[in-house]
Design a protein around this nucleic acid. Structure first.
Length: 639
RNA sequence: GCCCUUGUAGCUCAGUGGUAGAGCACUGCCCUCGUAAUCCUACAAGAAAGGCAGGGGUCGUGAGUUCGAAUCUCACCAAGGGCUCCA
């Protein structure tokens, strides 16, 4: 029997029935047969060695495709399971999927895996890879599957839930329950590395059994693995907790877990971020307010926080009255709104607050400045009429994009989250809110991903994700439409008809959490901040004691011109002090000796090691001020 | 919160049942000095954060075992990795 196959280039070819995708690939393009990992037959992803028995459209996937990576890493997880099964026959296999970057496999074992175990397992995996053991698919009955896995309660649970016939993948004697598809044989995996172990719950349920998880990464080329490991090393080098300590920006203490302490340089960096933030907000007519940290229980009842959020709040009792430290700024903001009556003429009313909030996060989730219990939101509440929603959203989105670009961490993508199952507000309210958000994004021609049902219970939201220099993305700002609070607090404004109306309200942040954003900047720049952000812009190094007074004179001139500097007159060699300044990532280093003092000039060294002699003082001041004013993210001494 | 790992000087770490250690940092003295170090690749040639002295620790906290505990056991505290990814 003959079948007609539509190839990836849309041409059609006749083959004998039973031919495999691999054989087709080989015939079409020998290179493709080496690179292909699996194959889409019509719309189903299949093994490369699956026989074709009817007309079909096929498309090959390689490691360059998302699906290809998944197949590759999932197969690597099987290799991991094979190795573990061989070394630890008692370990029970559970699941082992591909993840965004690599794969893992969860095992049920008595003792956790040690570092030495990991090395042994890795060695075993390499052996398995060398043997080029084929992956073979077999479909069996549920009964037979249950018989095969009778000692493995995890697999039995999975089999029970299956809607289709169970399929097994065999590698010689080893077999695992698996949907597939897989690469043709273990030899496709050329480079492998086990990265870490951790624990996880069976099916993510915290009351379930605890499994030991092994994470790994693999590639079709050794070079790719090296590049990835170099990347991990680079990530580690930029770790903001380490850099924060090294650069004396902030520290953490057991006396206040999850609540960072900011040192002088950290505060300077903070202020540099904030000054720019204020400038952008003032330009757009935001008004800045401050609300109290501790507010009465009554207010939190009214806002709904006690109902939905109490376990995360710090509560206290003063003079027999229950109070709570604010976890969000809105309720206080509502009270301020109600302080007087509002007219539509004031709208859109943009009220910003750098609100310090406290949230009692679970102790296990805390991590540096990324996940804290005390943080500062660059919050704002905007009150407006329905007609003003789209233009206001557009203005806000543009603000967000502009600010990210200035900080050197440009917007990567936007996500729109829609109505969740549990929600308040009417259908019309939701429709209006979701549509206006979409409209604003469309009019700005922004690509966005929709997360169905992922919105807050009180309204839909858009989230902004930025990308750092290492290509990692982070969620920062958010814009949320809120139906709940204006109702809860009975907010009104007087319209042109001289009647009371309910305003539309949005919450928004640009940076999200200032602490977190600062950490992202630290990692993005590896602590080597551009001039406008650097806590210390210039380090002055006098060669000998006799140059100190001239150094101070220069310092004074810097001070008058708002340039942040420090003089290092330690009794050490020039080389040593330069080294120190460079390790502290000070952008500009000025060395002062006899020549400079005599000519009233400077020897300026940039962080990258380039030195310029004979620079006139006003010239340098002008350069620094210009770079700060245009908030340049590069450091090149063009005078 | 739960699981795993870790906790020794300001930092990085060595020390596995018998006197608390190293390098860097810090302090003092000497020196008054001209642009740091590291890694990788090929070839060639170099260069090595200036010297001397000093201070600093209830070995995360508490309890237990022991003649004796940084080391073994238990509890607690903190940090890091995970706990959404589905045969």
């Amino acid at each position: 029997m003959k079948i007609k196959i539509t190839l990836p280039d849309k041409s059609q070819k006749i083959f004998d029935s039973g031919i495999t995708c691999y054989e087709i690939a080989k015939e079409v393009n020998p290179r493709l047969s080496k690179e292909a990992l699996a194959c889409f037959v019509n719309d189903d992803l299949k093994d490369l060695n699956a026989p074709l028995t009817s007309n079909a459209k096929i498309r090959f996937v390689t490691f360059n495709d998302e699906e290809g990576k998944k197949v590759f890493w999932h197969s690597s997880a099987h290799i991991l399971a094979m190795a573990v099964k061989e070394l630890f026959p008692k370990a029970k296999m559970t699941i082992g999927p591909a993840i965004e970057k690599g794969f893992y496999y969860d095992f049920y074992v008595k003792k956790p895996f040690t570092k030495e175990d990991l090395e042994k397992i890795e060695e075993k995996m390499r052996e398995i890879i060398k043997k080029k053991i084929p992956f073979e698919r077999k479909e069996i009955s549920k009964k037979k599957a249950q018989e095969l896995f009778k000692n493995n309660e995890f697999k039995l649970e999975l089999i029970k839930e299956l809607e289709t016939k169970p399929s097994l993948y065999y590698n010689n004697k080893f077999f695992d329950l698996c949907r597939g598809p897989h690469v043709p044989n273990t030899g496709y995996v050329k480079a492998i590395k086990l990265l870490s172990t951790s624990s996880a719950y069976w099916r993510g349920k915290s009351d379930g059994k605890v499994l030991m998880r092994i994470y790994g990464i693999s590639f079709p080329k050794q070079k790719m693995l090296k590049e990835y490991l170099d990347f991990l090393e680079e990530v580690e080098k930029r770790n903001h907790i380490k850099l924060g300590k090294q650069l004396e920006l902030y520290s953490f203490h057991p006396e206040a877990p999850g609540m960072p302490f900011f040192h002088d340089k950290g505060v300077k960096l903070w202020n540099n971020i904030m000054n720019y933030w204020k400038e952008e907000h003032e330009k757009l007519g935001y008004k800045q307010v401050m609300t109290p940290m501790i507010l009465s229980a009554e207010l939190w009842e009214r806002s709904g926080h006690f109902k939905y959020y109490k376990e995360n709040m710090y509560c206290l009792e003063i003079e027999g009255k229950e109070q709570a430290v604010k976890p969000m700024n809105c309720p206080g903001g509502m009270l301020m709104y109600k302080e007087k009556s509002h007219s539509y003429r004031e709208f859109p009313l943009k009220v910003a607050e750098l609100g310090v909030v406290h949230r009692h996060e679970l102790s296990g989730v805390l991590s540096g400045l990324f996940r804290v219990r005390k943080f500062t939101q660059d919050d704002a509440h905007i009150y407006m009429t329905k007609e003003q929603i789209v233009p206001t959203l557009k203005e806000t989105i543009n603000l967000v994009i502009r600010m990210y670009e200035t900080f050197g961490v440009p917007l990567d993508h936007v996500e729109l989250s829609t109505r969740p199952e549990k929600s308040i507000g009417s259908d019309e309210q939701w429709e209006l809110a979701e549509n206006t958000l979409k409209q604003a994004l469309d009019e700005l021609k922004l690509n966005y991903k929709i997360n169905e049902g992922d919105g807050a219970f009180y309204g839909p939201k858009i989230d902004f994700h930025i990308k750092d220099v290492l290509g990692r993305t982070w969620q920062c700002g958010t814009i949320q439409v809120d139906f709940a609070q204006p109702d809860n607090f009975d907010l009104t404004y007087i319209g042109p008809d001289n009647k009371k109306h309910r305003p539309v309200m949005i919450h928004r942040t640009v940076l999200g959490s200032l602490e977190r954003f600062m950490a992202i900047l630290v990692e993005n720049y590896a602590g080597a901040f551009p001039l406008w952000l650097a806590p210390e812009q210039v380090r002055i190094i006098p060669i000998a004691d006799r140059h100190l007074s001239f150094a101070r004179e220069i310092g004074n001139q810097f001070f008058k011109n708002k340039i942040r500097y420090e003089i290092d007159d330690n009794q050490e060699t020039v080389e040593y002090r330069i080294r120190k300044a460079q390790l502290q990532k000070v952008p500009l280093i000025i060395v002062i000796g006899d020549k400079e003092e005599k000519n009233k000039t400077l020897a300026v060294r940039t962080r990258d090691g380039k030195v310029k002699f004979g620079v006139r003082i006003p010239e340098l001041i002008k350069y620094v001020n210009k770079e700060v004013l245009r908030r340049s993210n590069e450091l090149s001494l063009k005078l």
